[in-house]
Amino acid sequence: MNPVNYLYLAALLFTIGATGVLIRRNAIVLFMCVELMLNACNLAFVAFSRMHGNLDGQIIAFFTMVVAAAEVVVGLAIIVSLFRSRHSASVDDASLMKL
């Protein structure tokens, strides 16, 4: 299959994720959308790696996964503490740069 199609898929996923970040309010959904965008990037990296015939893209994809895992930990912690103090997971409730 033509690897360019993977790139189209990555762009589609990224757009879905970005749209989700922009229009959803629930922090968890937001979070998932961010993950979606990250994975879209990963997909693109791997596709590029295949297209150019070297391993750089795949290595970067692993890095991204590690960073994403760390991000999940920190992000979920923030969401949980936000939920605890505000009793809601809406990001609009946290517009004041403080808890």
């Binding site: 970040v21 922009l22 229009i23 937001l30 609009d92 004041l96």
Partner: peptide, 13 residues
Amino acid sequence: QNGYARSYAVSMF
């Protein structure tokens, strides 16, 4: 600077 993460994201995008 309205504090909504979304609007910051829009400007970023």
